[in-house]
Every structure is written in C-alpha cells, then in structure tokens.
Amino acid sequence: MKDENASAPLLQVRGLVKHFPVKKNLLGRTTSFVSAVDGVDFDLRQGETLGVVGESGCGKSTTARLLLHLIEPTAGTIRFGGRTVGSVALPLKEFRRQVQMVFQDSYASLNPRLTVEESIVFGPMVHGIARHVAQARAHALLERVGLDPVRFAGRFTHELSGGQRQRVNIARALALQPRVLVLDEAVSALDKSVEAQVLNLLLDLKGEFGLTYLFISHDLEVVRFMADRVLVMYLGRVAELAPTEDLYTGSRHPYTSALLGSLLSMDPDRRTVAAPISGDPPNPIDPPAGCRFHTRCASAQAVCAKGAPGLAAHSREHWVACHMFDAGSGHGSAPAKAA
C-alpha cells in the first residue's frame, strides 16, 4: 500500500445496490422494495473532495452508510487501496479505522452520557491505544478544531452549541487518524455564520492531515465551494459525474441543469420566473421504468421510458447517464454512432 499508484483510486465502488424491504405478504415474504441505491459506481481518489448532491430519497445518505458497512449492501463491491472491504485482506474493523464518518445530527451522533473527552477517546481505545495516549491525542484534536480542551474536555454534549458539537464530532472522527472522512450533511444543521467556520476548518484539516473527503450535501453552493468533483444522484442512480466547475458551468444531464436552475439568484432584479421542473421526485418504491428522470424531463422521448441509460464518458472526466449523450441510443438529440 505504500507504493500505491497515484492514479489508482483510494476507494472504488462498483455496482452498489441496496434494496430495503417495505411490504410483506401473509407468508412473510417480501413483496416490494425501496431500491434506495441501484447500481452506483464511482471512485474516490486520494486527496480529493468528491461532492455528492441530490434531493431527498436519491440515495446519497444510503450510499454513505453502505460505504462504511453500517448497513449491508444487497450487491456490489467496495475496494479500499486495492483490497476488498470485509475480506481477510481488509477486515471491517481495520477499514473503519481508515474511513470515518461525520453525521448531520450532531446531537444524536454523540453519546449524551459521555463527556467530550470520553467520546473522542472511546474509538482509539477500542482499537487498542492506551488511555493516556488517546487522551493526549484528544486534547490536541480539541485544540485543533478550536475548542479549548481545558474548558471543553469535561463537558457533556447538551452543554455545547450545535457548532461546537459538530467540532467534537470532527475531532472524534479524526481520533483514529483516518485517511477518508465521509461527511453526510455535516454542516446542514448549522446556522450560516457557524457553517462558514466549520467549512473553513474542514478545508484546513484536509490540507494538514492529507485527508480525502466524500462530501454529501443538498446545498449546491456549499458543494461547489468544497468539492473537486461532483456526483449527482437521482433516485438511487448516478446521473452525472464531473469536475466541479465543469458541472456548474456546463452540466449535461437535464436533471443537473434543473437542480442548478433551482438555485436562488440573490438578486432582486433577477428573481426566478418559472420553476425549472414541476412536481416532486417520484416514489422510490415504484420508480419509473427506463431512465428514472424521464417523468419530469422536458427532453424525454420514447426511448427514455424503455431503457435505462448507462453512465458514459462525455469528455475524459465528465460522465453522463442520459440517452441524449449516448451515441446511437435512439434519442433524437443523441449524436450519431461513430463508425
């Protein structure tokens, strides 16, 4: 692992699927599923921040939980540094030491009966680090995330503000010296003035500890600020994957364009006059056949209801799952198939 090829992804996700059972018949057999994540592929490269955006129900949080095996995938493989997660080569416990998560709800994700210090020390001690070493590390981390250890180490979580609690969560995630942080809506519950502080902290920590981030958020402005590349999800599938500025200035997928079109202008003379798409996202229990977006898509044609478009390279780094960009798909706007 020391001589890792620079271009090999740190984390490789292939064919990730998660179906949640929702209904059972009289015999106790499951009769319907929510396909929360349905065939997701992506790579997380060493040192990058990969943003994941999408609306509620698109599967972005489920993907995060699957990554850490907090829930078991129905299908798919996750490889970390070339080794399959959960195999003998990379047991789950070792993987989780290297990949840590910060959740949206800073209060629910901390044990209310533990002090700040005990919360941070717990993980390293489980992994066999001596208490005094773990304590010293906890104090250094508290200092680093901007909480004076003398004042905060002995406090309980209810004595902290939302921003302070999220700093504790970040310190706790870093206590195992991981290589990857999965940030699932980590700043979404914070007020704007506090959010900016935590975003700056995350940027600083990334440089300092050489971290790789998977940054999940519904806030497109925050993702644009944080991410190097952005993955757009819709109803359990990847719609588009591209370098951040490519995506924000030259999105290809109609869903991405609608999402970006829903951003508010902040300019009283350029108020939104028409909604880019109508209706709510469909129910993931019974998702539309073919391309899952075709029921809301202005460019949809007959082919879109038939087959699901695969993720195809539009340019070297820009991937789109849309029949309009798939040569020979049968969509009127698709480029002609190269001979």
Binding site: S161, K192, S193, A196, Q197, L199, E221, R224, F225, Y248
Partner: peptide, 25 residues
Amino acid sequence: IGLLSTRAQGGRLSGKRLPTITGSP
C-alpha cells in the same frame, strides 16, 4: 454585512477561505 459575505457563493478560487463571523449567537 457578515451574513451576506459568509455565503459560499460562486465557487472557490484556489484555496480561498470563506469570510466568517467569529463566535456564536
């Protein structure tokens, strides 16, 4: 003034940090 400037808008110019309001309410 602070609220308007802390918004992460328009993306990040290489390595730029967000202006912040220090402290908490």
